Amino acid sequence: MKRIVLFLSLALALPCAFACAGSPPIPGVTRDINFAFNSSEMSNAEILSLANWIVDTHSKRSVLEGVSITGLADKREHNPQLIAEERANIVKRTLDVLGVRAAKFEVVGHLYRAAVPNDKFEPTGTRAELTLIPECPE
């Protein structure tokens, strides 16, 4: 899954890289937003944490080229594809409320597949991955 997000991030950043004549592009930043099992509702703590992260990120990268949101769901959840899509969409709506604007938005939902099965350090599939890709510096 991280490969997919990395690919999406690079795909969104690629036009930026070509547009940045003479100056290196600023890398995107990624954050996980966790959800309860079988739920697509963001907790108040996650909303507050996301809002703080957006404010902090916006102070460093004020103009965004793109935003990638990948909702994930564990295969054991009830109707996992739908839950994954709902998670991605709720993150998008939350970003809209927070005033996040970008030239491109990609919002998708996927079933989570662990890169290393049974690894205790592997993140769970009950989350959404959010990547903010900044515009090239002037």
Rank of each mutant, 00 (worst) to 15 (best):
H110M: 15
E129G: 09
A51T: 03
R93V: 10
E129K: 02
Y112K: 05
C16Y: 00
P134C: 02
R31V: 03
K75T: 04
L14H: 06
L6N: 05
T70L: 01
Q81H: 14
A45K: 04
S9D: 00
K60C: 02
D56I: 08
S9T: 10
A114V: 02
R93F: 14
A45G: 13
K2P: 13
H110Q: 12
L72K: 11
E77I: 04
S40I: 12
V29A: 11
G71D: 14
V91F: 04
V108L: 04
I47A: 08
R3M: 09
L6T: 05
L50N: 06
A11P: 02
A17R: 15
A88H: 08
A88C: 10
T126F: 11
P27I: 06
S39L: 12
I26P: 00
G66D: 15
P123V: 09
P123Y: 10
E86D: 14
R31A: 02
T30P: 07
R87F: 06
V5S: 05
A51M: 06
S23M: 08
K75D: 14
P123R: 10
R3L: 04
D32S: 15
L64I: 15
P27G: 06
G71C: 02
D74A: 01
G99W: 15
E106D: 11
S68D: 03
A114I: 03
E65V: 01
F37Q: 04
E65M: 07
G109L: 08
M1F: 11
T70H: 12
V97E: 08
E46F: 06
G99A: 13
G22Y: 13
S9C: 02
V116L: 09
L111K: 10
P27Y: 05
E138I: 05
E46I: 04
L132Y: 12
A19P: 10
F105C: 14
I69T: 09
E86V: 13
I54A: 07
V91I: 03
S23P: 02
G99R: 04
V67E: 00
E106A: 09
L98E: 00
N79V: 15
F35W: 14
E135Y: 15
L82P: 00
D32F: 10
S23F: 15
L50W: 01
N44A: 05
V91G: 02
A115L: 08
I33T: 11
P80V: 06
E77R: 10
L95G: 03
A103V: 07
E85R: 05
I54T: 04
G99T: 04
R31S: 01
S62W: 14
E138F: 07
K104V: 13
S39K: 11
S23Q: 07
A21W: 09
P137A: 02
L8E: 03
E85G: 12
T57S: 05
N79R: 15
I26C: 00
L12C: 08
T126W: 07
T70N: 11
I33K: 05
E106T: 13
G125M: 03
T30H: 00
C16D: 01
C20H: 03
R101W: 11
S59A: 09
G125K: 02
I69R: 11
A102S: 09
V97H: 09
P80G: 13
L111E: 03
F18V: 12
R101L: 12
A36L: 13
K92T: 11
L95I: 11
L111H: 08
R31W: 13
M42K: 05
G22M: 07
N44H: 01
L6I: 13
A11Q: 00
P117R: 00
V108Y: 10
